[in-house]
Structures are given as C-alpha cells and as structure tokens.
Amino acid sequence: MSSAQLGLLLYGAWKTILLTLGGMALALVIAFPVGLARVSHNKFVRAIGFTYVELFRGAAVLVLAFWFVYALPSLGWQLDPTFAGILALGLNMGAYSGEVVRGAIQAVPPGQIEAATALNFKPSQGMRRVVLPQAVRAMIPSFGNNVIEQLKATAVVAVVSIPELTFNGQLIWSGNGRAAAVFGGLLIGYGLMALIFMTGVKLLERRVAWT
C-alpha cells in the first residue's frame, strides 16, 4: 500500500468518525424534544412528535442524502457534502433516538410520578427532577446501540460521493482493481471501529450505572 493510499484511508476514517459523532450529536439534539412531544398531554404536540418520527424514520439516510446532494442545489442551496451527510444521518437517527427517549420516559414507574405529585411538584418539575434523571440512565444502552448503527449508516453516504472511508476505499479500488483486498479490508476496518465505539459505550455505561 502506498503512502498516498494510506493517507486516503486515514482521512476517510477520520471523516467517518466525524459523520458518526456529528450525526449522533444532531440525533440527540432532536431526540429529546421529539421524545417529550411524543408523551405530551397535548394532542397537537403529540401529533407533531409522531409525524416527525414517522417521516424521518421512513426516509432512509440514503434517500435524504440523495435529496440534499442532488436535488437541493436545484433550489439554490448548495450544502457542504460532509454537512449534508451529517444532516441526513442525524435527521434519520433523531427519529429512532426520539423513540428511545419516549420508551425510557414511559418505562419510569407511574409511582414515581405519583410521588412527585404527592410532593407538590408541578408536572414540569416532576418531569425534570424525577422522571428524566431516571429515564436518561435507561436510555444509555439504547443510545450506545444507536452509535454503532450510526457508524454503519455512515457508509451509505459514499453513494453520494461524500469522501469518507467507504468512498475513499472505492477510489483505491478503482486505481488498483483489487476488490477482495479493498472491500475485505474495509469490512475489517469497520469491524474494528465498531469494536472501539462499543468499548467506549461500555465504559460510559459503567460510569453512569447505578452504584
């Protein structure tokens, strides 16, 4: 492997990590309002949450990426490719993570909310001080899985020519024609990155586990 090829791969891996973390950050920013909207007492707010989840869970990352990269410029919006990738990944994962938030909130025993009411907390206080702190701990393992899923999902933006690991791997392949080595190597590379992320997630989980 030449040093140019190595550089291409390392740069691609860096972009992949950026897409993973950027997409996940955006997903989390979206997930909390969406998840809270899904459990709102207000029917209208609930409907907004539901619509977001259905729409952006239904729209696959690649569908969004295609639209951002190939259709949006026709409307006069030219996005930076990496930004477009993060947007597609984050909007989609935001819907899944919003469901995680909803599930975790709904899994907090009703007795906790009743206790908060008995202590004369306002509903918003009960949510913020009693329900959410418990729910967030319950979300961590699911968010951990989402990070791994997000890592896997980043590969698809190669299709719209965003120069991350898979795309740069394809570049190398088109140069040397060694498909087995390149794609086998990519699979192993992603496997290793997944392993690293998984270890990170496990460490994080342990730090926030109930003591």
Partner: peptide, 20 residues
C-alpha cells in the same frame, strides 16, 4: 461480524469480489 459492518460494503463484496 456481518451485523456489525455496513451492508453497502457487503454488497460491494458480493458484487465485485465473488466474480473473481
């Protein structure tokens, strides 16, 4: 391993490597 790695690359593998 299959679950932990991207589908897209698995597709490349099936389509471009298997013929070899």
């Amino acid at each position: 391993f299959i679950r932990g790695t991207p589908l897209l690359i698995q597709l490349f593998f099936l389509f471009f490597v298997l013929p070899q």
